[in-house]
């Protein structure tokens, strides 16, 4: 119970309070302690980088154990191992490692994300219907910005370019700022709950 609940709550509380106090007050020992805490968390965070790799290995080796003909999991694990071997043995600045990054990782990653260009277009076509005032506002500002952001918009409908600048710097700021302030208040409330030990789920508690 002590190690499961009390110690993590104390650690989170002390770390949070020290870091906040060090920011607002010039107290040398507290500032010193806060910089140690931040350094410690950065070291721990490095270890967290490996968790993703462990999860991937566990999941796909299980897949292969269940079905040895699972070609996809095999391809994933082979690519994973080759990348690591090349990166560690030859170095990150080596031609082989750069090759994997430039010609496998970047083209496939970019292509996957660019699928959204196609999906977002059809989504706009199907969902952007001016059925009420809110939808109409969304639709109109969205279309003006889409045209105003590209050279052809200024050629076909010259008002779209200045209208986009105005929407972005005035109308958009009014709406976004309310969302930002409200979001920040919620965010601060959650942070406070973590620090005072009311939100233990954040670090695996219940």
């Amino acid at each position: 119970m002590f190690l499961r609940k009390t110690v993590p709550t104390i650690i989170a509380g002390v770390c949070g309070v020290v870091v906040v106090v060090a920011y607002f007050f010039e107290i040398a020992p507290i500032k010193d302690l806060a910089s140690h805490i931040l350094k410690w968390q950065s070291v721990i965070a490095v270890f967290a980088l490996g968790l993703g790799g462990v999860n991937i290995i566990r999941l796909h080796t299980k897949n292969l154990q269940r079905d040895p003909k699972n070609f996809y999991s095999l391809a994933l694990l082979v690519t994973f191992v080759i990348t690591i071997v090349v990166g560690l043995a030859m170095g990150q600045t080596s031609a082989a490692y750069t090759f994997i990054f430039d010609y496998i990782n970047v083209p496939t990653g970019s292509a996957i994300f660019s699928l959204l260009a196609f999906y977002i277009g059809t989504a706009a076509y199907r969902a952007f219907r001016a059925k009420n005032a809110e939808a109409a506002i969304l639709l109109i500002t969205g279309c003006i910005v889409m045209l105003g952001r590209v050279p052809i918009g200024a050629k076909i409908l010259p008002f779209t370019a200045p209208a986009t600048d105005w929407i972005m710097s005035v109308l958009n700021v009014g709406g976004q700022r309310g969302v930002m302030i409200a979001g920040a208040i919620g965010f601060i409330a959650v942070s406070l709950r973590i620090i005072v030990g009311l939100e233990r789920r954040a670090y695996g508690g219940e």
């Binding site: 706009a124 199907r126 219907r129 001016a130 279309c143 889409m146 952001r149 050279p151 918009g153």
Partner: peptide, 23 residues
């Protein structure tokens, strides 16, 4: 890339306008 960006945006706006006009 700007010419391609122009044509893609124009296409989406045309489709949105078309969908709304038809509705």
């Amino acid at each position: 890339g700007m010419d391609a960006q122009s044509m893609a945006h124009l296409l989406i706006v045309i489709f949105v306008v078309l969908g709304n006009a038809a509705m």
